[in-house]
Design a protein around this nucleic acid. Structure first.
Length: 427
RNA sequence: GUGGACGUAGCUCAGCUGGUAGAGCCCCGGGUUGUGAUCCCGGCUGUCGUGGGUUCGAGUCCCAUCGUCCACCCCA
């Protein structure tokens, strides 16, 4: 035996037994996005490293230590995308799609971050990413959030709640940041090691500390919401009113800070208590400055990313994982002639009943074996093709999920007979 | 990057204080020669994660390494 090759840490296979939930989530999302007028865009998984550095921020954890970066044969530094927005914005600019037009786009696929894996966090993970470009809001903010609420409802997910906040403009945030740093400096002796580090790198994150000992200091800190510029204040107030008007419940969390540098004004996050330490299921916000920062016309925009693995886990926990698709008919063959005819008759059956799942027994096996396979497959009907029956121009049909016995029918009528039996036994 | 727990057949796991491995499920065959899910009988599978060390002897002790899980950091 040669040595087996191991899978890469933090990268998972989605097996056929699990794929049903994924498809359920994807098709539900696809449907709702289409209903809101969003169009799919597909962009590369690899981009120039500089794109992410400029978009996400040079000194964020994602860029500093979590990117899969490599040099290609031409000597360029490339990176596997750690998030989707940067690539989508780049594509919009590269293809000249801006020019005053307004875009509603979505994109789904894998992202890559070199982190230590844990529950709900993997090195290759999937996101459904939605972006509305060219809208200043707050109406689009409200609609986008309503879209996500509608998706949870459609999926039957209840263990999520919405938190929102406003980060204001870059200017007001900078002013606030100074207030915050001043405040924490006064209490520096009481800060834990992580928080002291953040004082330099990202003071806003101290507000988000999970250390209970930090709670008191954090509680006394100045709030971002108290330092918003008037326009951001109005924007946020209107958003809150709109959300109430459409019946989306939310909490304002003045300590909600996003990790990526590009966010401005509205930020939101759907969180759950069902996934251990990883509580964010879907989050995003407004990034009014990013497009200009990447070389496009200054254009306001908002977007969010949904963690597919996390939502899949919520669906599984909620018992919303669809059952594996079983065949409608399993074709059992007996005898040399019947084995040959089995292929032909099954193909004809597929012509006649294209919407039915028909599984032909392949690779031989005696009757007992074939029936066992038929049973395990979950098929509702067994179609029996034997040399005896063929000699008389007949085949046999046996229901596998009910008591009623086996019956014969002429080959010419088999399609309509199967259809009748399947329709008959329906729930 | 840091910390803790764990790695025994395809899967779930047992294996006491060291004496060269077991159960259930799955899979395959059989129980009158063409009929499943129950029942009965039989059968297959493991370099006990990997590499060293201690020992007459290690799945069982020690070290290292890889991997999994959970948490920190950070994030979807």
């Amino acid at each position: 035996m040669t040595k087996q090759i191991q899978p890469i840490r933090g990268m998972n296979d989605v097996l056929p037994s699990e794929i049903g939930v994924w498809q359920y989530l994807e098709s539900s999302a696809r449907e709702i996005l289409a209903a809101y007028g969003y169009e799919e865009i597909r962009v590369p998984i690899v981009e120039h490293t500089d794109l992410f550095k400029r978009a996400i921020g040079e000194f964020t954890d994602v860029v500093e230590k979590e990117m899969y970066t490599f040099t290609d044969q031409g000597g360029d530094s490339l990176t596997l995308r750690p998030e989707a927005t940067a690539g989508i914005v780049r594509a919009v600019i590269s293809n000249g799609l801006l020019r005053g037009s307004r875009l509603k786009l979505w994109c789904a696929g894998p992202m890559f971050r070199h982190e230590r894996p844990q529950k709900g966090r993997y090195r290759q993970f999937n996101q459904i990413d939605v972006e509305a470009i060219g809208f200043a809001g707050p109406d689009v903010d409200a609609e986008l959030i309503a879209l996500t609420a509608r998706l949870w409802k459609k999926l039957g997910i209840e263990r999520v709640r919405l938190q929102i906040n406003s980060l204001g403009t870059p200017e007001s945030r900078r002013v606030y940041r100074e207030h915050l740093v001043n405040y924490f400096r006064q209490h520096e002796s009481r800060l834990d090691a992580d928080s002291r580090r953040r004082l330099e790198s990202n003071p806003l994150r101290i507000l988000d500390s999970k250390n209970p000992e930090m709670r008191e200091i954090v509680a006394g800190a100045p709030l971002l919401t108290e330092h918003l510029d008037p326009e951001s204040r109005a924007h946020f107030d209107t958003l809150c009113v709109m959300l109430r008007d459409v019946g989306v419940e939310f909490e304002v969390n003045p300590r909600l800070v996003r990790g990526l540098d590009y966010y401005t004004r509205t930020v939101f996050e759907w969180i759950t208590d069902a996934l251990g330490a990883q509580d964010a299921v879907c989050s995003g916000g407004r990034y009014d400055g990013l497009i200009a920062q990447l070389g496009g016309e200054p254009t306001p925009a908002i977007g969010f990313a949904m963690g597919v693995e996390r939502v899949v886990e919520l669906l599984v926990q909620a018992g919303r994982a669809p059952a594996r698709q079983a065949p409608d008919v399993y074709v059992v063959v007996s005898g040399e002639l019947a084995t040959k005819q089995g292929v032909v008759l099954t193909e004809r059956l597929r012509d006649a009943l294209p919407h039915r799942r028909i599984e032909l027994n392949l690779g031989g096996g005696n009757f007992k074996t074939q029936f066992r396979r038929a049973d395990r497959s979950g098929a509702r009907l067994a179609l029996i093709i034997g040399d005896d029956e063929l000699g008389r121009g007949m085949v046999a049909l046996k229901p596998l999920r009910e008591e009623s016995g086996q019956s014969e029918c002429p080959i010419a009528e088999v399609a309509s007979r199967i259809e009748a039996m399947l329709a008959d036994g329906r729930r």
